[in-house]
Simulated scan of single mutants.
Amino acid sequence: MTLSFAAHSGLSLLSRLLAAVLGGYALASALALWLGAVLPAPRAEAVLAGIQWSFAAHVAAVIWAFSPVSPSRVWGGLLTLVALLLAASVVLGPAGGG
């Protein structure tokens, strides 16, 4: 009984670690892309602002990945946010920026 609980714990920890690293990176990249596309500034300034905000988003994703929320909810939230940001940047991309 203890072995299966330890294995389940290890898989949960691995899932949270992957969500923090890979999910956080995906969220940060999608946010940087979206902000670079929609901010009303010259393109270089919009991209730099997007990159700066992406660091904060990655930190927030890491904190959320290790919160008491279930790993499946963390993954669902991260993937939903990434999909929404990517879709919005594709739709709004050509018109955004200066």
Rank of each mutant, 00 (worst) to 15 (best):
M1D: 05
M1Q: 10
M1L: 13
M1W: 06
T2A: 12
L3Q: 15
S4H: 11
A7E: 13
A7R: 15
A7Q: 15
H8F: 15
H8G: 14
H8T: 14
S9K: 12
S9N: 14
S9P: 00
G10R: 09
G10S: 11
G10F: 08
G10V: 07
L11Q: 08
L11N: 13
L11V: 03
S12W: 09
S12K: 14
S12T: 12
L13F: 10
L14A: 15
L14R: 11
S15N: 03
L17D: 04
L17A: 15
L18C: 10
L18G: 05
A19W: 11
A20N: 06
A20Q: 02
A20C: 10
V21K: 02
L22G: 10
L22Y: 13
L22M: 11
G23E: 01
G23P: 10
G24K: 02
G24F: 00
G24C: 06
Y25D: 14
L27K: 04
L27T: 05
A28D: 07
A28M: 01
A28T: 09
S29W: 08
S29H: 10
L31M: 06
L31C: 02
L35A: 07
G36R: 03
G36F: 03
G36C: 09
A37F: 01
A37T: 02
V38I: 09
V38S: 00
P40A: 11
P40D: 12
A41Q: 07
A41G: 05
P42F: 00
P42S: 02
P42N: 15
A44V: 14
A44H: 13
A44W: 12
E45R: 10
E45K: 09
A46R: 02
A46L: 01
A46W: 00
A46G: 05
V47F: 00
G50E: 01
G50W: 02
I51Q: 14
I51R: 14
Q52K: 15
Q52L: 15
Q52Y: 12
W53R: 08
W53K: 06
S54Y: 05
F55V: 13
F55N: 12
F55W: 12
A56Y: 03
A56Q: 01
A57T: 12
A57I: 04
A57V: 06
V59F: 14
V59R: 04
V59T: 05
V59S: 06
A60I: 09
A60M: 05
A61N: 05
I63W: 05
W64K: 04
A65Y: 03
A65L: 02
F66K: 05
F66S: 01
S67I: 05
S67R: 03
P68K: 07
V69A: 12
P71M: 10
P71W: 13
P71N: 14
S72V: 07
R73A: 15
V74K: 00
G76C: 03
L78K: 01
L79S: 15
L79D: 06
L79W: 07
L81F: 06
V82L: 00
V82M: 02
V82I: 08
L84A: 12
L85R: 02
L85G: 11
L85S: 13
L85Q: 14
A87S: 13
A88M: 04
S89K: 00
S89E: 13
V90E: 13
V91W: 11
L92G: 04
G93P: 04
G93E: 08
P94R: 07
P94S: 07
P94E: 07
P94L: 01
A95C: 00
G96F: 01
G97E: 01
G98H: 08
G98A: 04
